[in-house]
């Protein structure tokens, strides 16, 4: 099973329970209505066109953040959630630059900064079989937890049952190669400020295509360079043998030509 969250934007009543639950379970400051993700706001509810939209980590199936992290501080768990191991992190912020959803945030004012983001309550709940705090408290049933495949089935049946109510698209089904957090909406996602120009292939493939060539470059390049050296050395030796000292003297003479004199 892949742990996943489906948020139905047509059901959200903006009560803020998910935000509150997130703050309480993670010991974050009880800010009333955070509007931007930050190191102390791992989930928010933002407003666009009268719709209340949850935002938090999308928990990509093939996460960009985990692929770019030089020390493996971010990783994908077999259960699905993408988690962060603080003790590895060097604070390079490449995950923040690379994340197609702009999710990871940084403790900018700490001398020992951590990267912060939603972990789908993996460490304290999901790995023990519980659901995340946010979905457990949603009174409207707008954000629900379950197996990804089952939630996709649920989403399709909701769209089929009320085609007037929903846009025919599950956001997160294919975006960035598929995410564990998915959305249903009554208004086109582009109009709500969702990133809709994302690739449907996982992003890590972009750099892996290049990075996987490294052994080839080392192997072929190394042999070629050594070969070039060998050939040129041999030719120079032969030249010396054939022409004796004359050549050497000429070479020496050409070196002594003062500046501006020798055209290369």
């Amino acid at each position: 099973m892949t742990a996943a969250i489906l948020t139905d934007l047509t059901k959200c009543t903006d009560c803020g329970a998910c935000v509150l639950a997130c703050q309480q379970i993670n010991g974050l400051p009880a800010v009333e209505q955070p509007t931007k993700l930050s190191d102390t706001a791992w989930t928010i509810v933002r407003q666009s066109r009268g719709v209340s939209i949850r935002k938090h980590c999308m928990h990509c199936l093939d996460p960009t953040c985990a692929s770019v992290c030089p020390v493996g501080a971010l990783r994908s768990t077999p259960e699905g959630p993408v988690v962060y191991e603080e003790s590895r992190c060097i604070g390079c912020r490449y995950c923040m630059l690379a994340c197609p959803f702009d999710v990871p945030t940084y403790e900018w004012h700490s001398a020992h900064p951590k990267v912060q983001k939603c972990s789908m309550c993996f460490e304290n709940r999901v790995q023990y079989g519980d659901q995340p705090a946010c979905t457990s408290v949603c009174p409207a049933g707008a954000t629900i937890f379950g197996d990804r495949d089952e939630l996709i089935g649920e989403a399709y049946s909701r769209i089929a049952a009320a085609p007037d109510r929903y846009v025919d698209h599950i956001y997160g089904l294919e975006e960035a190669g598929g995410t564990s957090v998915m959305f249903l909406s009554g208004i086109p996602f582009a109009a709500l400020g969702f990133a809709t120009d994302l690739d449907t292939e996982p992003y890590p493939r972009l750099t892996w295509n290049i990075l996987s060539q490294v052994p080839n470059i080392v192997g072929i390049g190394g042999v070629t360079l050594a070969g070039v050296y060998w050939v040129i050395s041999r030719r120079m030796t032969l030249e010396r043998l054939n022409h004796g000292l004359e050549v050497d003297e000429e070479a020496e003479a050409s070196r002594r030509i003062p500046e501006n004199g020798g055209e290369s």
Binding site: A66, S67, V68, C69, P70, V71, G72, R88, C92, Y94, P204, T207, W208, I210, L211, V214
Partner: peptide, 10 residues
């Protein structure tokens, strides 16, 4: 702790 999939690591 290198992650071979990371360009930054390389």
């Amino acid at each position: 702790m290198g992650n071979p999939h990371s360009v930054m690591f390389e």
